[in-house]
Nucleic acid binder design. Structure first.
Lengths: 330, 330
DNA sequence: TTGTAGGCGTTATCAT
DNA sequence: ATGATAACGCCTACAA
């Protein structure tokens, strides 16, 4: 199966290939006589002409392709390819006539070299990178690349364009909201793993609690798994002066807390509250009355494409963009 | 930023560009003297040469890109871009030096035209299609395309290469397994929506139950949502001669049944059993003791790439490939 | 208003 | 053993 080219149309319509190119791409140029124009357009339609993407890319040095770059090691851990970011990217790019390429590197160290290689071999015009890496060296390696890049996630370098939700604001908002609902004893389930992101969460928690005059030391747990979080929450709930509200930073812990509440015969949204700070992809999992941040990952993907396309038009890098999702109730 | 080409290497090494091409692509040809070979290789490395993908594609008529094609309308409903199929495709293709392209069309009617357009404009060598469409016309339109295609999912046309799990075998296996565990009264939660797939499930259920001498009429529910399934299961569980085991074809109904069992103080894996027939992406959701089919969507993605790459090598179309996942216990 | 010619980076076919 | 030369399909100066 072979396809019609501009040359074919030119021969068929009895004109030069140049004019065909001009007419089909709607270039002004001198101005073509209406007759030839129609003739060319007609033959093009008849022959089912579609411009060859590779030839165009070779000539114009623009592939109109954008790569989403992820490390296999992080896929195994965090499953970033199963986030609604991907449909968001695809939609956002598609609307601008770009295509989305998925590029998987073995490890996060391989990300920068992979981008360099793609740039050198000209497979894409720019990259969107998702990484959960905490080490500064990784981000500075990215920054050194000349290829246009936008990061999705908590990026470790403020000079790199990045899009993410605003974790500290989420903590503060949740805490303030729970206080307004009359809670003074609030429990936190947040990972104790080391790293900038977790430290940020903890620090914000302590600061915000202090500002609001709440106790931030007493009810804290590093449990992140469903069963262990359930056990811990059950213990707290049976204590005489236990917490009347919870904040969870992970979906599994949140489900565990939900289980504990159900077992204790308590209901969220009344005497008890739960606020989830996480990417909630399965809101149906939670008990009615649960509060959660409606992080719209699809929108984050779209936003990232918008930023990257800006960059491709030589607009200045915007630096970090942080989004505070709306607080919703199931 | 511009990159080294074969011409640059040729000038630098004092040879013709033709030889550079030969040496770099490891073509035999006459046989190049070891000296020039080394000199060329060395300069290439020094200059950081990477072959230009677009030029190569233009010349060789091979993009080494494969598109995963999905309709936006189906993304909204079934979220296929959030399945582990995508990492499976990316990994499978990456290993063979191919790249994965994500192509989103507005509706499923747009899929065939989109593939045709990609073929005509030469952006990919083949396509992998995921669709949940039930109408025969859709599949025959796909079959008419000359572009290499592999379908993932319950494909409506047996002549099209397709990869999916074996739904009837899963029903039979689950039923047989539950009977072997001593159950004679088994409840089914399966969608009552019309369509080939659901009909297939129901028919298989009736047939298999008859073969095993079980009652297939009494305990059936079309509930697919968590709460409504929970209510129904609770009713059944409180009946004097209610079912002692359940089969669920959807994740939400399964969680509802789990809730009902917990509320009734029953435990799976002992006097009560639950088998889930579905893509279980969150096994941690289920109560310990729950049975489920470990459908490895990543492997399905890999398998699909393998089939497509076969097709690209002009191997004959394999027709439908059906996989029976292992039955596992949480 | 239209045509010619050159080139993007590669591969492939011919000579030498 | 090595070099010209001609495509692949498209775009863009420059000429007529």
């Amino acid at each position: 199966m072979t396809f019609a080219t501009q040359k074919d149309i030119a021969r068929e319509a009895g004109v030069s290939q140049t004019i065909v190119s001009d007419v089909l791409q709607g270039r002004p140029r001198g101005r073509v006589s209406e007759g030839t124009r129609q003739r060319i357009l007609e033959t093009a339609r008849r022959l089912g002409y579609k411009p060859n993407a590779m030839a165009r890319a070779l000539r114009s040095r623009q592939t109109r392709q954008v790569a989403y770059v992820i490390a296999q090691s992080e896929i195994d851990r965090y499953r970033p390819l199963e986030e609604p970011i991907v449909p968001g990217l695809a939609a956002g790019l598609g609307e601008q006539g770009y295509r989305l390429l998925i590029e998987v590197t073995p490890s996060h160290e391989g990300i920068a070299p992979a981008i360099e290689e793609m740039a050198a071999s000209g497979v894409c015009d720019g990259c969107i990178v998702r990484s959960f890496e905490e080490q500064a060296g990784f981000w500075s390696a990215l920054k050194q690349l000349e290829h246009p890049i936008v990061v999705i996630g908590q990026c470790g370098d403020p000079e790199l364009p990045s899009v993410a939700h605003d974790a500290p604001a989420m903590v503060r908002t949740a805490l303030r909201h729970l206080k307004e609902r009359g809670h003074t004893r609030i429990g936190l389930f947040a990972s104790r793993r080391s790293g900038d992101y977790h430290r940020l969460i903890h620090n914000t928690w302590h600061e915000a609690a202090q500002v609001l005059g709440l106790d931030s030391e007493h009810w804290m747990s590093g449990e992140t798994e469903r069963r262990s979080a359930e056990a811990r929450a059950a213990g707290w709930l049976s204590a005489p002066d236990g917490p009347t509200a919870f904040i969870c930073t992970g979906e599994r812990a949140a489900v565990g807390v939900t289980d504990a509440a159900a077992r204790a015969g308590r209901r969220f949204g009344k005497d008890l509250d739960l606020a989830v700070i996480s990417n909630v992809t399965h809101a149906w999992l939670y008990a009615p009355g649960t509060w959660y941040f409606g992080t719209d990952l699809e929108a984050i993907g779209r936003r990232a494409t918008a930023e990257l396309l800006h960059l491709l038009e030589d607009c200045p890098s915007p630096g970090p963009i942080r989004i505070l999702p709306e607080l919703k109730q199931v």
